[in-house]
Design a protein around this nucleic acid. Structure first.
Length: 523
RNA sequence: GUCCCCGUAGCUUAAUGGAUAAAGCAGGACUCUUCUAAGGUCUUGAUGUAGGUUCGAUUCCUGCCGGGGACACCA
């Protein structure tokens, strides 16, 4: 419809006039609206022309303050309901990225360390981005990149050797407090790298496996299934080699090999790629990772999701990549999320400052009648409801409030709709889309058909929160409808209402699916 | 100090350059003998500041004020 209107208006106006056709923010200004009348200063003539050439599906057109507003016919809404119901689980999908191969890297938890709320944040954002690509037709691979070597691992292994309950924090603390232990841990670090000590190898392998198994459990709870796991132990040497093979890009400085990014972009800074001990830093490993990824999966797009504290670092890295692997750099998109901060500091944490994802889920669960799906939904909703770049202030009480904007609100509306459909089925209420619409078109009808557009826009902006905003508004319109109209009954009107319920359930379920939020049938 | 990001209601957040800035929480008033009250209805309340571009600026540009992050061998 948008395209039809755009073409129609463009035919009338002088060549090259810039205007937009959009859904006005306020439903009182029609279903579609254009500023073409203002831009061209021909609102009156344009309205006359559009009234004469009204396309099918448009009931009437008006001129308000120069904006031309279009109102869709009842028939349009009736048809859209049956389309939604027919398409079911497929409704909202499009094929704009057909043929595209996307790899999305997120979560990036480190073996031997806690899976904390930062990882939970990354996982939630990454999963919904991955799903958005799928819903827009791309083939998607999910990847996690994990730091299985390095000082943090040595600290944890030291902790295991000393039978600490939480090995990493204990090792990290000891490392800071004792020079002697610091040397011991550095020694362990070397031994892990060169695998020279059988006892340490054994502890390392056992600990690594235990840790990775633990991650799998939490990924399952969160609804993520990774296709690839990449490890720093495999990217390190490759990355180092890449750096050494590109002497024109990197220079030696104070014993290290660095990249002077400022030479290419004055807003960037210099970073070390190989340290003075000859070990590759995270930067070099990341170059190695880009290569490893491309060899494993010939992607057309690589999305990397991290916390925003590494934004500047990533800009430097992309600049270096641009010089070495220009075609890979052009396909790489870095997306960052903010920090997850807790509003009330009542979180229980047995490991000092770090709050684990598991403890957060359990705390929320305790407030939701022990309902895992509701707890996960509440947390994910809080993370996805606003733009992904900013920090999330997580109020543990409000996030699971029984009132207002929340995951619970969406899930509850969905469960309610399901309950109505089950009742109608028991009573053999007739095929809903054969019902008749009556009276004014309801706000919920004016929202339902827009879902596919929201999915497309959310990907375009890398903004899952567009879906959240839309679903929240949709759930609100559904609850209002539910409170004021009787659905179960044997009149043509109630059959039409049932069709609305069914279409709503389809859209809500699909929308929650895009977000990676569970949609329970009953609550 | 340099570079990047961010300032919207008391709080947490929306708003592809458009119309009366949209919600939730908190505060006030209602609403279950009817399909799930984890719901619904009404109500109080906001664009940091000074300019600029534009028919039109929360949105784009500049200065200032305030907050956060990064700035060489951690990731």
């Amino acid at each position: 419809m948008k395209e039809i209107l755009e073409r129609l208006i463009a035919d009338f106006l002088p060549e090259g006039t810039r205007f937009v056709v959009e859904h006005p923010t306020n439903l009182a200004f029609g279903d579609y609206s254009t500023n073409a009348g203002i831009v061209s200063k021909k609102a009156v003539e344009l309205l006359e022309y559009l009234e004469k050439n009204k396309p099918e599906g448009i009931e009437w057109v008006e001129n308000k303050n120069g904006f031309i507003n279009f109102y869709l016919t009842k028939e349009f809404f009736k048809k859209s309901l049956s389309e939604i119901i027919d398409k079911g689980r497929e409704f909202g999908k499009n094929e704009s990225l057909k043929g595209e191969k996307t790899i999305v890297e997120y979560t990036d938890a480190n073996p031997f360390k806690e899976f904390h709320i930062g990882h939970l944040m990354s996982n939630t954002v990454g999963e919904s981005i991955a799903r958005l690509f799928e819903w827009n037709g791309a083939e998607v691979k999910r990847a996690s990149y994990q730091g299985d070597v390095g000082l943090h691992v040595a600290k944890a292994v030291w902790g295991i050797m000393h039978n600490e309950k939480d090995p990493y924090p204990a090792g990290a603390k000891a490392y800071e407090e004792s020079e002697e232990i610091k040397k011991e841990i550095q020694d362990i670090n070397r031994k892990i790298y060169d695998k020279s000590d059988p006892e340490i190898n054994k502890l390392y392998e056992e600990g690594r496996k235990k840790s990775l198994d633990g991650f799998l459990t939490i990924y399952r709870r969160l609804g993520t299934e990774f296709d690839y796991f990449f490890f720093e132990s495999e990217t390190a040497e490759i990355g180092k080699k890449i750096v050494l093979e590109n002497p024109g890009v990197f220079v030696e400085s104070q014993g290290a090999i660095v990249f002077n990014a400022a030479e290419h972009d004055s807003s960037l800074h210099t970073r070390v790629f190989i340290n003075s001990d000859g070990l590759p830093t995270y930067e070099a490993k990341e170059l190695g990772l880009a290569k490893v990824k491309a060899e494993k999966y010939s992607y057309t797009k690589s999305v990397v999701i991290t916390g925003n504290e590494v934004n500047d670092y990533f800009r430097v890295l992309l600049q270096a990549m641009k010089l070495i692997f220009p075609e890979l750099a052009a396909r790489t998109k870095h997306l960052s999320h903010g920090m997850l901060r807790l509003f009330s500091g009542k979180m229980s944490s047995r490991t000092g400052d770090v709050i684990t994802a598991e403890s957060l889920i359990e705390e929320v669960k305790a407030k939701t009648m022990d309902n895992e799906q509701v707890a996960i939904g509440a947390i994910k909703y809080m993370i996805l409801r606003s733009n992904i770049g900013g920090d999330i202030v997580f109020d543990i009480d409000k996030s699971v409030s029984t009132e207002g904007d929340s995951g619970v609100y969406l899930q509850y509306a969905h469960a309610r709709a399901n309950s109505l459909l089950e009742k109608a089925k028991d009573l053999s209420q007739p095929s809903p889309w054969q019902g008749e619409g009556e009276g004014e078109v309801r706000p919920i009808e004016k929202l339902l058909y827009r879902f596919p557009e929201v999915v497309a826009r959310a990907l375009e902006d890398y903004a899952p929160h567009h879906i959240v905003t839309y679903l929240t508004e949709l759930a609100s319109s559904f609850n209002n409808f539910y409170a004021h109209e009787q659905v179960i009954g044997d009149s043509p009107e109630s059959n039409y209402r049932l069709a609305i319920v069914e279409a709503f359930k389809v859209v809500m379920k699909n929308g929650l699916n895009v977000l990676g939020i569970p949609a329970p049938e009953r609550m």
